[in-house]
């Protein structure tokens, strides 16, 4: 469960003003908005990385954050990158990536490949796997489908559905229309305000409102 109450976030000027969102277990929330509208800032505030100027954010459960920029080490393999953020042993890591939750991401196919030799899709799958392996209850995803090919997008969307089905909460900031079809609620961020939008409308129409 996540409750965001009257949250405002400021950098030099106010980026978000009086944001109110509630999300229950098994729910997926979509955040839509132009560049600089505050989508990433809201995710950072939920993660506890950016402190709100006012308001309150209550979260229950462990948070995993897949940022736009991958937190991956180029000179290490996929396996070593997974090792970076978990204290699990090798066998447990291999078991986890082949288990029901993570097998959708197909990380095992490139487990010994160094990040610098990976495609964008591989990096995104690995970044997601490295977050999921730590066992979060809440998943924050910033532009998870950016610059991915169709199979990679499909795998990540499948994963989102399976995470929801297991009772996890997902927050996704994106521009991609297909993401919002997997969301239960979509919010439009504009001029610092966060307004619930009709997820069945075209993304372009929502943004032009």
């Amino acid at each position: 469960m996540i409750t965001i109450e009257n949250v405002s976030v400021k950098y030099k000027k106010t980026v978000l003003k009086d944001v109110n969102i509630k999300a229950s277990n098994g729910e997926c929330i979509g955040l839509l908005g132009l560049n600089g509208s505050g989508k990433s800032t809201l995710l950072s505030a939920i993660a506890g990385i950016k402190k709100p100027a006012s308001g309150k954010i209550t979260t229950e459960g462990k948070i995993g954050f897949v940022t736009q920029e991958n937190a991956l080490i180029d000179e290490l393999t996929a396996y070593d990158n997974l090792l970076m953020w978990t204290s699990m042993k090798k066998d447990d890591i291999l078991k986890a990536i082949n288990g029901p939750k993570l097998s959708i991401l197909k990380v095992n196919d490139f487990i010994n490949v160094k990040v610098r030799n990976m495609s964008g899709g591989m990096k995104k799958r690995l970044a997601l796997a490295s977050v999921i392996i730590t066992g979060p209850d809440i998943l924050l995803m910033d532009e998870p489908l950016a610059a991915l090919d169709i199979p990679a997008k499909s795998d990540i969307l499948k994963f989102i559905d399976s995470f929801k089905a297991d009772g996890g909460i997902v927050f996704i900031a994106s521009h991609e229309a297909e993401v919002f079809r997997h969301c239960d609620t979509v919010y439009h961020l504009k001029d610092g305000k966060c307004i619930e939008a009709d997820k069945n409308r075209q993304v372009v129409d929502i943004i032009n409102d």
Partner: peptide, 9 residues
Amino acid sequence: PAFIARAKL
């Protein structure tokens, strides 16, 4: 920032 965020979380 991605690494710092991961480290914090």
